[in-house]
Computed example of a mutant assay.
Amino acid sequence: MQIDLRGRSEMGDYMVIASGRSTRQVAAIAEHLTDKLKQEYGVLSKTEGKETGDWVLIDTGDVIVHVFRPEVREFYQLEKMWAPSGAAADSFR
């Protein structure tokens, strides 16, 4: 799910929320994404949570990426907190 944060938050312009099926997959998605951003676009990213693999935060500056295990994503429900009012979060999954 992609959420436009422009004009709503100082932390970035966009938020991307994604899921992996397991801790290993979440960590692998995060690692692949940070490697690709660095190699193809020269973007250095800060990451948090890759060691545990439940929820990895990738901060690229303008874009904040959250990669969750499904249970953790459901618990925190960032879509409900950040999606524009009236948007159905389930339609983005």
Score class of each variant (00 low, 15 high):
residue 78 L to A: 08
residue 65 V to L: 12
residue 47 T to M: 15
residue 16 V to E: 02
residue 20 G to F: 00
residue 25 Q to D: 04
residue 22 S to L: 10
residue 69 R to G: 00
residue 69 R to E: 04
residue 59 D to G: 06
residue 59 D to R: 04
residue 63 V to P: 04
residue 91 S to H: 13
residue 90 D to L: 06
residue 77 Q to F: 15
residue 19 S to C: 13
residue 38 K to S: 13
residue 9 S to M: 13
residue 34 T to S: 13
residue 84 P to E: 15
residue 34 T to N: 07
residue 14 Y to C: 08
residue 1 M to T: 14
residue 72 V to T: 15
residue 9 S to H: 11
residue 52 T to A: 13
residue 39 Q to Y: 05
residue 2 Q to F: 00
residue 93 R to F: 14
residue 28 A to F: 02
residue 35 D to C: 13
residue 61 G to K: 05
residue 43 V to G: 05
residue 38 K to T: 03
residue 71 E to V: 06
residue 45 S to D: 05
residue 61 G to E: 10
residue 42 G to C: 10
residue 68 F to W: 01
residue 18 A to T: 08
residue 67 V to H: 01
residue 53 G to T: 01
residue 26 V to S: 00
residue 70 P to A: 00
residue 87 A to F: 11
residue 71 E to H: 08
residue 65 V to Q: 07
residue 29 I to V: 05
residue 69 R to L: 11
residue 7 G to C: 09
residue 17 I to W: 02
residue 93 R to M: 10
residue 64 I to S: 06
residue 66 H to Y: 08
residue 82 W to F: 14
residue 85 S to Q: 14
residue 83 A to G: 04
residue 24 R to P: 03
residue 53 G to M: 01
residue 76 Y to S: 11
residue 60 T to D: 05
residue 43 V to M: 10
residue 57 L to F: 06
residue 25 Q to K: 13
residue 16 V to F: 05
residue 80 K to E: 15
residue 71 E to G: 04
residue 58 I to P: 02
residue 62 D to R: 00
residue 26 V to I: 05
residue 90 D to Q: 10
residue 89 A to P: 06
residue 32 H to E: 05
residue 81 M to H: 13
residue 13 D to E: 11
residue 85 S to D: 13
residue 88 A to H: 11
